[in-house]
Design a protein around this nucleic acid. Structure first.
Lengths: 160, 160
DNA sequence: CATTATTGCTGGTATATGCCACTATATGGT
DNA sequence: ACCATATAGTGGCATATACCAGCAATAATG
């Protein structure tokens, strides 16, 4: 048995989930989530909330469904996550003029200001991470993760 | 401007979070989580629950804290996640003989059986993913994610 | 040995996320 | 116009996950 395989076999005993793509991904997500959450804490925003604001700002005044889709999130989950932000008047939701089924999400002035504030903290933690991990390496990692998350890959999986 | 940078600039408009390591990781986690969840559904276990059972089995009869640490999870979160599994008699929790503060977690016979059943489904979805993504590529990705999740990296970040 | 600090866990509360059932609105075909 | 479908959101419920404030038991210290 080659040395690498030996090491892998050994690792399996210690860490039987080391081979599970999902388990590994979640562990990393917990760690990184905490890093970003902590960094953003002074702004009063969680990392997820920051992402919601960022995506809303980026898309203009997206519909709930557009927002959800762009984040690969369940529509209902998106709505629920928006809850605290709506309550705290960071975002507002209005019925679309042309289609009354549709709700459009947008930042309030307060939301905009908060987002800008949090943006500085985001920049810091993002840089901090990339200094430690390597910017190019991080870019490659994101690239791979984007593939996993892509619709194209999803299709490839299901069409098999 | 080189073509690659152009593409990156363009992507920023469409996807302003494409550069956020955390956002990218979460998106991938949602996708992959759903893939594994769906695959395990016939067993009645969520992917996270499967991971809890697997880790418990692997560690023998770990304490709550050991289980939490091994999954990089909050102790309280671990306890709460264990809730449904305890309720459904998949795992049991007992006070340690030597230290009455400590609770030791172990699989029941039913939990063991369920774990084995789910293991087959896990194998299938794991293989399915790796056929589509590439086994070596998946291994590399896990490797990188493990670094992000590692204590060593955590230390490197905080000591900076 | 009494006091203090530490450790391990529990419970409450809050957000994150997903599924499902349901409602409201549009739309397409007859 | 009318009905069948499809689309967009809402609300309820369940799990996932974290923080914090206790509480209990052990370890450390003088």
């Amino acid at each position: 048995m080659k040395r690498k395989e030996e090491a892998a076999a050994m690792a399996t005993v210690t860490d039987p989930l080391g081979a599970c793509n999902n388990a590994t991904l979640r562990k990393a997500a917990r760690r990184l989530g905490k890093l970003y959450d902590d960094a953003l804490a002074p702004s009063g925003l969680r990392a997820t909330q920051y992402v919601l604001l960022a995506q809303t700002a980026a898309l203009g005044t997206p519909t709930m469904a557009e927002l959800a889709r762009s984040l690969l999130m369940d529509l209902s989950a998106t709505r629920h996550s928006l809850g605290p932000l709506i309550r705290d008047r960071m975002v507002k939701v209005r019925v679309d003029a042309n289609d009354r089924r549709v709700k459009r999400v947008s930042l309030t002035a307060a939301g905009e200001a908060r987002f800008v504030e949090a943006g500085k903290l985001w920049r810091q933690v993002q840089d901090h991470f990339e200094r430690a991990f390597g910017a190019a390496r991080a870019a490659r990692l994101r690239e791979e993760l984007s593939v996993v998350a892509s619709d194209a890959f999803e299709d490839a999986l299901s069409s098999e």
